[in-house]
Amino acid sequence: MTDTAPSLASDAPLLREQIGTTLRLTMNRARSRNALSEEMLDALTEAFKEAGEDKSVHVIVLAADGDVFCAGHHLKEMTLHRADEDGGRAYFADIMARCSAMMMGIVKCPKPVIAEVQGMATAAGCQLVATCDLAIAADQAEFCTPGVNIGLFCSTPMVAVSRNLQRKQMMEMLLTGEIIDAITAKGYGLVNRVVPKQYLRTVIDKYASEIASKSPLTLKIGKEAFYNQLDMPLQEAYDYCSQVMTENMLARDAEEGINAFIQKRQPEWTGE
């Protein structure tokens, strides 16, 4: 596939750039702090679905324009619906469902998703970071779940973030709403690495290139199995993963990879 570069003048909420087998998605609403508005939710949902089905894409990078990675839900947009006949109930329920579906789209996407966090990620923005398979943060990035400060507990962000952090660390973030820095976020397990901002793209590209060099079938099998086994009892997880490895062993890419290892050569993946 021919590499495509995004137009810097584009007014689209989400810019797309494919370099080799890595698809780079950039949230393009710096003025609204890349909030998860209706248009952003729809754009992200569509992009992850399309990328999941595109055989030319092996890895997805989620980045953002501006100083803020993502400020969470678009509160101004949501508040307008308090004037609805039901006080906004139906609209709020729909937005929460759409946001949850978008997050699950990342988890269910067969391609690994890497968050490139250049700035602050708050509330559902923090949830977005936690939902991605990997997260690399600039040293000046910050994270928080501040809903408690405005009377709106970060309940849905809690779902994803609490699956990254220990219980007391999560409760501290939820109950205080305080901001944590990138180093603390790494210590908590929210991000994989913290790097100087000027090297963020370089490190992300290295990660993406390394992962993209693997068998796309193996990445799909592994990501699905990882999330499926997380909440299983230990014996059930072993039984399930044993079945997964048996089926994986019968795949053409596994045969090729093992033979290449034995023969001390580079494997040639077919995705089968």
Results as ranks from 00 to 15, higher is better:
208 A>L: 11
208 A>W: 09
209 S>K: 11
209 S>Q: 06
209 S>H: 08
210 E>P: 03
210 E>D: 14
210 E>L: 13
211 I>M: 15
211 I>R: 11
211 I>E: 10
212 A>E: 11
212 A>Y: 05
212 A>W: 13
213 S>Y: 00
213 S>N: 05
213 S>C: 06
214 K>N: 15
216 P>D: 14
218 T>F: 10
218 T>N: 06
219 L>H: 04
219 L>I: 07
220 K>N: 09
220 K>T: 13
221 I>R: 02
221 I>D: 02
221 I>Q: 03
221 I>M: 12
222 G>P: 10
223 K>Q: 09
223 K>W: 02
224 E>M: 11
224 E>T: 08
225 A>S: 11
228 N>A: 15
228 N>G: 03
229 Q>V: 15
229 Q>A: 15
230 L>T: 08
230 L>D: 05
232 M>Q: 02
232 M>Y: 04
232 M>K: 10
232 M>I: 00
233 P>W: 00
233 P>A: 00
235 Q>W: 04
236 E>H: 10
237 A>R: 11
237 A>M: 13
237 A>K: 09
238 Y>V: 14
239 D>L: 14
241 C>D: 12
241 C>Q: 13
243 Q>F: 07
243 Q>A: 14
244 V>I: 14
245 M>N: 08
245 M>T: 11
245 M>E: 11
247 E>F: 02
247 E>V: 01
248 N>A: 14
249 M>K: 06
250 L>R: 09
250 L>Y: 06
250 L>P: 05
253 D>E: 12
254 A>M: 12
